[in-house]
Design a binder for these strands. Structure first.
Length: 740
RNA sequence: GCCGGAGUGGCGAAACAGGCAGACGCGACGGUCUCAAAAACCGUUGGGAGGCAACUCCCUUGUCGGUUCGAGUCCGACCUCCGGCACCA
């Protein structure tokens, strides 16, 4: 489509001018109030696609809006550069991950510049560079010293044929390896964790943050706090070191209805309690469970499976002996890894008991119940029956009475259980920040001293899958001297989860060049916390929760003095193409570059904003982009209409009043919509306004000064959306540089 | 499966607090301009019925049911699609 103006020329011109004038570099000694507007940094996947633009351009519009409102706005940009795709590129194409990453950074910088955003490039961070990951390592050590990092065994996906650990993404939906189609199993490895569960209750508190309710709900459900009782079942008769099986339940009132016990297949007591005649079957079952994903295991749809392991435990309240089973619906990671089976009052237990012909004992009577068999679990309130001395209580009273009783008798205790698990940060991969830990036979686990940081990633490690972390085979890396006794020692060869890098990058933007510390307290004190964070809702429970945890941990370590990293959050939706999120692996990526080249960044910015509500995303189609081009063309002509043509006309008082009313209505609407990220209706209002102005021009009903004022207002309101076009027109209508 | 969202004309959508459904745009159709086309501009455009006409009537917000004087909006059940589910980031 033909344009009345040349976007390529004017966009280049103004971008160069803004850069030359350092218009968007920000400082801490600025008298204006600060505003930290942050968008989630992109992963260095190679190209910015339409999905990135959809996220970044409107975020910049909001940042520009705050800037025009008189704030000292920092709107930084950087790159999330460690991770699996770089390593895959190395394996598949023989390019070093560093080379691949930096090529992508180079290309993405160029694309990012074309958006016309107010990024202060002096503050850029690239997480895979030593000057950044030195501090990622340093922060790991702070958490380690603060008792928030620990090592424990945890399962990882394992391909027996490739002899390698697989990411979940590398396991096909049918449970096989994406490279060789071998069935994937799980293997226990010693791995590092962060104690995020210590902060579970504080993370539940969202009173200090202004976030979308749906994100708060997702985080709350993810943390999954439930109050209940830990109750022990007796296994003394087996003469083991362990005398009891500990279970967690939120329904102590149903304790007399327990007719079986279910352990997670991975539970440490399983091998000890399995009798010889059940051994073979139990081992087969455990093997099968290791091949199931957690999603499969927790499906309430699939038929229950399990095996009896040959032993019994005793319910200390009823003195009843119940059989011990294992079943994959019990998870070692939740509660105590043991579930007391109450088929009458839990649907999963009910289905399990039905399938394996285990008795079902009703202990909470529905109203009007006269002893008939249940056809499904009864989970509503009722009266306790078959429960010894507790008969006749309402089940709510019973909950409390039984909890008191087990506490008094030392059979159990009131406790709180969380669905949230500690954060596993170990990755058996090359392309990540090394975990700065040394293992010494004499001194044990020794942190790398600060002065030896960073532990550099060796450039010449092998990336081919070998069955271990690539670094394990790099002799020069592994073998080192113990910092304490100077004897021979080995380095940790796992690297850190990339979510670790993204849990503090927003702090580094405040002080990106600091080589004495990750950040200075003064600069953090000025800029942080982030006033407005924007990014995809797909990060609702992982990145956003990890970052919150990280800040709380740093606060308790005395490194920062605020509680929440992101005060306000807005999640833009996802642009889909061919019904799915755009991703390189899916191959449905659409590049904006040709549209930017032909129609200009301003048109692409405005079009993406006009598609629909920003938080809902949408399907990319280029069919409507002409509408924006036409509108900008009309706006161009309108703004450059010669106001002198209106000079000397008799003022039509009514028309002037109406123009004024329309102007104020539009200002109000545009301001409110920008505050709430309602970009689509903001643009609709501006279109209505320009249509109105066109009619006013045609009828020559207003005078030249009113006209000048109206055009000025229009350009100011459009400026955050179309920074280049409005800058050009601002100059063209005789205003001093710059509109921004 | 579990958690969180979404579903409105041919298409993207609007209706922000329960009060005229479809703003703004795309597309389509008709017209102006042109040798012709493109562009631009003007007009029409949810579906159906009636009227020469100004206009009038009926239907319509995924499905079914409910609350209400009144429901796209609130409640219940269901269907479909999207995001996340702890090693993609």
């Amino acid at each position: 489509m033909a344009l009345n103006y040349n976007p390529r020329e004017i966009e280049k011109k103004w971008q160069e001018r803004w850069a030359r004038d350092r218009l968007y570099e920000v400082r801490e000694d600025d008298p204006r109030p600060k505003w930290y507007e942050l968008h989630m940094y992109p992963y260095t996947s190679g190209n910015l696609h339409v999905g990135h633009w959809y996220a970044l351009a409107p975020a910049d519009v909001h940042a520009r809006f705050m800037r025009m409102k008189g704030y000292n706005v920092m709107h930084p940009m950087g790159f999330d550069a460690f991770g699996l795709p770089a390593e895959n590129a190395a394996i598949n194409h023989g390019i070093h991950p560093h080379t691949w990453t930096m090529q992508n950074v180079e290309n993405m910088r160029r694309q990012l510049r074309s958006i016309g955003a107010i990024y202060d490039w002096n503050r850029e961070v690239v997480t895979s560079l030593p000057e950044y990951y030195k501090w990622t390592e340093w922060l790991f050590l702070q958490l380690y010293r603060g008792g928030l990092a620990y090592r424990a065994k945890a399962p990882a996906n394992w391909c027996p044929s490739c002899q390698t650990v697989l990411a979940n993404e590398q396991v096909l939906p049918n449970g096989t390896c994406e490279r060789c189609a071998t069935e994937v199993t799980r293997r226990d490895l010693e791995q590092w964790f962060f104690r995020i569960t210590k902060y579970a209750d504080e993370l539940l508190d969202n009173s200090k943050i202004d976030w979308p309710e749906r994100i708060n709900i997702m985080q709350r459900n993810w943390i999954g706090r439930s109050e209940g009782v830990e109750i022990s079942f007796d296994i003394e008769e087996y003469g083991l070191e362990e005398k009891e099986i500990r279970t967690f339940t939120t329904r102590p009132d149903t304790i007399f209805g327990v007719t079986f016990m279910v352990l997670a297949p991975e539970h440490p007591l399983v091998s000890k309690l399995t009798t010889p005649e059940h051994k073979e079957e139990v081992e087969r079952y455990i093997e099968a469970a290791r091949k199931q994903s957690e999603i499969q295991r927790l499906s309430t749809e699939k038929e229950k499976t399990g095996v009896f392991i040959g032993s019994y435990c005793v319910n200390r309240l009823s003195d009843e002996k119940v059989p011990v089973w294992i079943a994959d619906y019990a998870l070692l990671t939740y509660g105590t890894g043991a579930v007391m089976g109450v088929p009458a009052h839990d649907q999963r237990d009910f289905e399990f008991a039905k399938k394996f012909h285990i008795p079902i004992k009703t202990v909470i009577a529905p109203r009007g119940w006269s002893g008939e068999e249940l056809t499904e679990a009864y989970v509503e309130p009722g009266t306790m029956v078959n429960s010894g001395r507790f008969n006749g209580l309402s089940n709510e009273e019973g909950k409390k009475a039984i909890a008191d009783f087990v506490e008094k008798e030392s059979i159990g205790k009131l406790t709180v259980s969380y669905r949230l698990r500690d954060w596993l940060i170990s990755r058996q991969r090359y392309w990540g920040a090394p975990i700065p830990i040394i293992y010494c036979d004499k001194c044990g686990t020794v942190p790398v001293p600060d002065e030896d940081l960073p532990v550099l990633l060796p450039e010449d490690a092998a990336f081919k899958p070998t069955g271990e972390s690539p670094l394990k085979y790099h002799q020069g890396f592994v073998h080192t001297a113990c910092p304490q006794c100077h004897g021979p020692a080995r380095r940790e060869t796992d690297t850190m989860d990339t979510f670790m890098c993204s849990s503090w990058y927003f702090l580094r933007y405040a002080d990106p060049k600091n080589n004495q510390a990750p950040f200075s307290k003064e600069k953090i004190g000025y800029w942080l916390p982030v006033d407005q964070y924007t990014g995809g809702a797909e990060h609702a429970v992982m990145h956003l929760l990890y970052a919150r945890f990280f800040i709380k941990a740093l606060r308790d370590l005395g490194l920062v003095d605020f509680d929440e990293p992101f005060l306000r959050l807005f999640n833009q939706g996802i642009i889909i193409a061919q019904r799915h999120k755009m991703s390189k692996s899916r191959g449905n990526v659409i590049t904006p570059d040709p549209y930017v080249e032909e129609l200009g960044a301003d048109v692409v910015r405005a079009y993406l904003m006009f598609i629909g509500p920003w938080d809902q995303g949408g399907e990319w189609s280029d069919s409507g982009i002409n509408g924006i081009t036409r509108w900008f063309n009309r706006a161009w002509n309108l703004a450059l209409s010669d106001p002198d043509e209106l000079a000397g006309r008799p003022a039509d008082v009514k028309a002037l009043q109406e123009l004024e009313r329309m102007t104020h209505k539009t200002i109000k609407k545009v301001t409110q919509d920008l505050e709430r990220f309602r970009f689509n209706t903001m643009l609709a209002a501006l279109m209505e306004y320009s249509n109105y102005l066109a009619t006013a021009w045609e009828s020559r009903s207003v005078d030249s000064s009113a006209w000048r004022k109206a055009i000025e207002t229009f350009l100011l309101l459009l400026a955050p959306t179309a920074p280049h076009l409005t800058e050009e027109l601002w100059e063209g209508t005789g205003h001093p540089y710059s509109i921004h």
